[in-house]
């Protein structure tokens, strides 16, 4: 029986109270649980919904989350030194760990970064009382020991929904926040959320290739996971259209393979491997069981830098 990290830490926290273990010792336990010699990853959240972390936690195809964090071989694992969603220690115990940046690490950013300051603050990674997310991204991203930066999700890649028209927070992606000087250090894994395969597959490539990125396209996305427009690999391409002019067709169970372009599908403008690898993989190396269009929902174009404004309206009804 594999004991989950949550269960183990729950026992520890309860036992810690009983035997007087302090928060510092809890951190040491966390570090001891992490795989020795695994790639250190610092995962920080800006204006995020935490969907990217949840997607990561559901990884199955390349590795389960417990193998990725705890039980895998060092060469196949990551040492997730910071994850505000998952880690047990909190406050400066979490953000000012003594050896946080003392050796090479990968910075993973989830969520958009607001400008001007004040819309997303955290206390603190540098030792100040509190700091803006833009300061944290700059501090960690420009650090000498930062080997690579992964912008996870469309928000961190290109601004996403927090950066959509009408926002007052000036939300930006990591590329825009750090500027062109750091472009080569940043790979984007967009999606809202991204498929866990895209995140874990990219990390797996970096682990096997000395932290180098896989081949990236012009939006800094790994070609392996964003190979081409959806229509190129969609089984419905070329079929008849579901049409809003015939409202009885929408949701008609007999028309399961009709093309959704006329009801708002943005697949023709969107790159990803959703039609083939799909979502909710049921086991290691097994393709997913369904995807948006397969379930009858027109593609929202969530992996593109034009999401959401230029993908709107998402549904055509007239």
């Amino acid at each position: 029986m594999i004991i989950s990290r949550r269960q183990f830490l729950k026992y520890c926290t309860v036992a810690a109270g009983a035997i007087g273990l302090t928060a510092t010792d809890l951190l040491k336990l966390e570090n001891a649980l992490a795989v020795n010699g695994a790639l250190p990853v610092i995962w920080i959240n800006g204006q995020s919904c935490t969907g990217c972390t949840v997607s990561l936690a559901n990884t199955v195809y390349y590795a389960t989350i417990q193998d990725l964090l705890l039980f895998g071989a060092p060469a196949d694992s990551i040492n997730l030194k910071v994850s505000e969603t998952l880690m047990a220690s909190m406050s400066t115990q979490a953000t000012q760990q003594a050896d946080l940046t003392s050796s090479a690490f990968v910075l993973a950013v989830e969520g958009a970064i607001p400008t001007p300051d004040g819309y997303c603050t955290v206390g603190s990674y540098t030792g100040a009382a509190t700091e803006n997310m833009s300061d944290v991204v700059t501090y960690l991203g420009t650090h000498a020991n930062c080997a690579a930066i992964l912008a996870i999700g469309t928000c961190a890649s290109y601004g996403g929904i927090p950066g959509a028209a009408g926002n007052v927070t000036g939300a930006k992606g990591v590329l825009e926040c750090l500027g062109p000087a750091y472009k080569k250090k940043i790979a984007c894994i967009p999606g809202c959320p991204p498929n866990p395969n895209w995140i874990v597959g990219s990390i797996a490539y970096m682990l096997a290739n000395n932290y180098k990125f896989p081949q990236l396209d012009n939006l800094r996305r790994p070609n392996a996971f964003y190979p081409g427009r959806l229509c190129n690999s969609c089984s419905r391409f070329g079929n008849n259209f579901i049409d809003y002019k015939k409202p009885d067709d929408i949701g008609n169970p007999a028309l399961t393979d009709y093309c959704l372009k006329k009801v708002g599908c943005k697949g023709s403008k969107t790159k990803s491997d959703c039609p083939t690898k799909q979502w909710h993989s049921p086991g290691a190396s097994v393709d997913g069981v369904n995807w948006c269009v397969g379930a009858g929902a027109p593609c929202q174009g969530c992996t593109q830098n034009s999401f959401p404004d230029k993908m709107s309206p998402f549904h055509y009804i007239r």
Binding site: G46, Q47, S48, C49, T50, G51, C52, T53, V54, S55, A112, P114, Y119, C120, T121, V122, G160, I161, P162, A164, A165, G166, N167, V168, T169, A171, C192, P193, Q300, P308, S312, P313, F314, H315, I317
Partner: peptide, 29 residues
């Protein structure tokens, strides 16, 4: 609370049918 995005402001002047698609991203858990 240390973070603000302003979904109500982002929703203004949009097609009302987009509201579901956008507001579902308030939380990803």
């Amino acid at each position: 609370g240390k973070m603000f995005r302003g979904f109500e402001l982002i929703l203004k002047n949009r097609n009302p049918r987009d509201a579901v698609i956008l507001t579902q991203r308030i939380c990803g858990v």
